[in-house]
Every structure is written in structure tokens, then in C-alpha cells.
Amino acid sequence: MSDLEAPAGSQMKKPMVVAEGVWKSFGRIDVLRGIDLHVDHGNVFCLVGPSGSGKSTFLRCINRLETIDAGRLSVAGDLIGYREKGDRLHEMTEKDIAAQRREIGMVFQRFNLFPHMTALQNVMEAPIKVRRLSKKESRERAQQLLDRVGLGDKTHLYPNQLSGGQQQRVAIARALAMEPKLMLFDEPTSALDPELVGEVLDVMRQLAQDGMTMIVVTHEMGFAREVGDALVFIDDGLVVESGHPRDVIGNPQHERTKAFLSKVL
């Protein structure tokens, strides 16, 4: 963890995620009103804000679970959902979108494990069906990943036989099985009992140490301050304040940020 300094301008690699003026509306309601941000390689990027501020919607736009209405959104230099030919954008086919998504792991607030499969089968499924791995290879990898999240002895259990924290750790292992270059976390601990939050955050902390690029929508300010490399406060579809988590949380500049933080801290 040596490069904790603010994102260096002289970074060789392009940023992992770049958003420029991302705009999204549901019917008449503008949920995102021009989001600009960039997420560097290997960073843990925290999105915070009140509910309804659009932070989850923005996260879902990154792997095109939602489409954006205006602006540009790219991951690892590739536009999400569109191909640029000359100065025109062409919509991607379902196949190409699926190919983009497999590079981006996602962890949901409500886990969304497949209830008819065991923990091991949940992790094995996508590598077999999408990456065309052999069953044997996929099983070994799944076992390793479940060991890594501390559930090596629960592989044969179905999701409803696991606690919420265990389910969320299986969900993280499932996303990692696709070897994504970016991980999205949509309030991963919000549906958990307080005493189970820690075990999920531990796994995420480990992941951050291993150098995974992560975008995390969270209300866990302690986690953001400790693990985060950058933090953005979003309200009403706009970026209100951004910077290093220590600075934004410790010394917020904007009134709206102060009011929000005083409630969640």
C-alpha cells in the first residue's frame, strides 16, 4: 500500500473507468445529471450519498444494467454499450455487451445468489457457461475462491442454508470467478445484520490489498476512510464533492456533505 498518495497525474495507464457528463433519466425524473469522474487502476473508489441520489444507478450504468441517455462512459478505454465508428455511436449486440460484462464483476445488496444451486455451483456456473472452462477446472477454481473468502467447508450448502454474511461472501467469490478487472459493489453490507458486516468488509479489504480495482457504493464510512483511495459524494444526480476519503469525511467542504456525514457517522 505504498501508492496511497492522491491519483498521480503522471500515471502511465489510462484510468479504469472514465465518466463524462453521464446523464440518465427514468421517465421524467433525471436521476443522473452529468456525472464526471475517473477511477484509477487498483483504486478503491467509494460512492456515497443519500438514498435516491443516483449512486446505485450510476454503478448499474457501468455494466449496462441501465443504459445512459447522454454522456460517455468507458471502462479500460472501451465505451460501454456502444462502438464508435467515425463520429457515430453504434449500439452493441447482446453478445458484445455480455462480453463486456464478463470483465466487470458485480456484487448486489441482496446477494442474488442462485437459490437452486449450492455455493460451489453458484461459483462454477458462469466460468463453465461463459468462459467455457471444463467442469473440473472450474470446480478447482471455485473451491480455491471459496477457501479464500473463508467458506471452503460450506461449498455443498444451498444459499438459504447460509447466513447473510456467508451468502454475500459466496457472491463475491462468484464474481471473482470470472476474473474481472473491475469489481462493482452495490451497498454490499446494507442487507446484513450488524454483526455480519465485518466478515464481508474483511473480504473486501483483502481484495483491495490484492490490487483489485473496486467501485463501492457504501454507507460504511469507517471502511471508506480506511480502505478507500478516492471518494465521491453524490447528491441529486450530481457530484457534490470528491477527494481522498480522509479529507472528504474528515473535513467536508460542502454544506450538503456536512449534513449527510453528520447523520451517518
Binding site: 455494466n63 455480455a98 462480453a99 460484462r101 464478463r102 466487470i104 448486489f108 458462469a126 457457461k129 461463459v130
Partner: peptide
Amino acid sequence: EAASALGMK
């Protein structure tokens, strides 16, 4: 959504 996010068609 979970299946789509994993890249399944």
C-alpha cells in the same frame, strides 16, 4: 441481473 452481470446471455 446477477446472471447478466456475470456475462450470461
